[in-house]
Design a protein around this nucleic acid. Structure first.
Lengths: 196, 196
DNA sequence: ATTATCTATAGATCTATAGATAATGC
DNA sequence: ATTATCTATAGATCTATAGATAATGC
């Protein structure tokens, strides 16, 4: 019933990762400790050897999930740059894709955890604030170099997060895609007017 | 212990309204039936004389809260038109205000209920879809008449909802306002570039 | 007589803890 | 000997129901 110290560390990490996924999928209050530990292949009794409380795990899972976003975005932007594609276009194609919309468990933590985790524990706000800044910074560097600004990046981030959330609320697949596409078009060329 | 039929109807309505507010503030899973009935001045035992289940109340509360949005927006747009103010400017000034950000219980149900209610019961999706369409339609009518389109309205709605949610995740008041203002500027004049 | 509401509680579930167990690590 | 994990359970809370109560409405 005991495992190596390395295995225990890996188990702990598995719990944090399962939490990040399950909290995004079902909400913090929608996942019990037993289900959570079970998803990591453990029983619920061992939980408190690894974490002080559920809230503590929530904070850690949010931290890990939020940090993954800008890392992934930077990789996408750099890969695009290497192909001589506009970095923002690559970012947006990924973020506003049906695949991202349908995989909330592995998707953007700002959209997938923010509204729920915030209600569960307002003391997480600094963590989310830092993540908003980090996400916006990646966008700012990905914007076309002409007068690009931090405010443009914040507006762009708002459009992306909002469209993802709205697309997830919608039943009709065609309408959902239209939300994603309209937001992508606005973000990639804010000046253009689009006709219905 | 019995009340008039009219009072019973008013009590029922009070429960639905309290639910709409409390679900937005604490999430569906964050409010118990006892707290809910208490907020309407009743005890929890009487709940099932009025509603078949908690899920049934969730659906009704979402319906009422979602319908209120476009109604309010239409009133704001029409009042602005009467003053010869641009309707979209009036809408945005209301939606992206610190007051709206800070009063989630009475605020936009797409932002305040959507992400949470969706997870709690996916069968609510048609209700939310209808609400997305209705909100977008008000925006479409409020857009400047030149080539305005349904896609422009969807992108604008995405920016507004996303900015409200991000502004609510942020601790620093100045940064939170900056998110709201950057989104407002983008929505009111998409073509403009903003300098930091 | 009907019924809206209340008191009381059953049954399920959730967080957290206690004590046992068995493999690691000194 | 230490400790990561397991089994078992305490205590709280939540949804839902049962039966009592008292005022309405025919």
């Amino acid at each position: 019933m005991k495992v190596t110290r390395a295995q225990a560390q890996a188990n702990r990490q598995a719990v944090v990762e399962a939490a990040g996924r399950l909290f995004r999928e079902h909400g913090v209050k929608g996942v019990g400790l037993a289900e959570l530990m079970g998803a990591a292949g453990l029983t619920h009794g061992g939980f408190y050897k690894q974490f002080g409380s559920k809230d503590e795990l929530v904070a850690e899972a949010c931290g890990v999930a939020l940090a993954a976003g800008p890392l992934k975005w930077t990789r996408i932007a750099e890969a695009a740059g290497a192909r001589r594609e506009a970095p923002l276009a690559a970012l947006v194609r990924h973020y506003l894709s049906p695949a991202h919309r349908d995989h909330i468990g592995k998707g953007c933590a700002l959209a997938g955890l923010g509204p729920d985790a915030m209600r569960h524990d307002a003391s997480l706000r600094p963590r989310f604030e830092e993540a908003v800044r980090a996400h916006a910074e990646v966008i700012e560097h990905a914007l076309p170099p002409s007068g690009a600004s931090a405010d443009d990046a914040l507006a762009t981030l708002s459009t992306m997060v909002g469209a993802l959330l709205l697309a997830r609320m919608v039943e009709d697949e065609a309408f959902s895609r239209r939300i994603l596409d309209a937001a992508a078009a606005r973000v990639l060329d804010p000046a253009a007017e689009r006709t219905a």
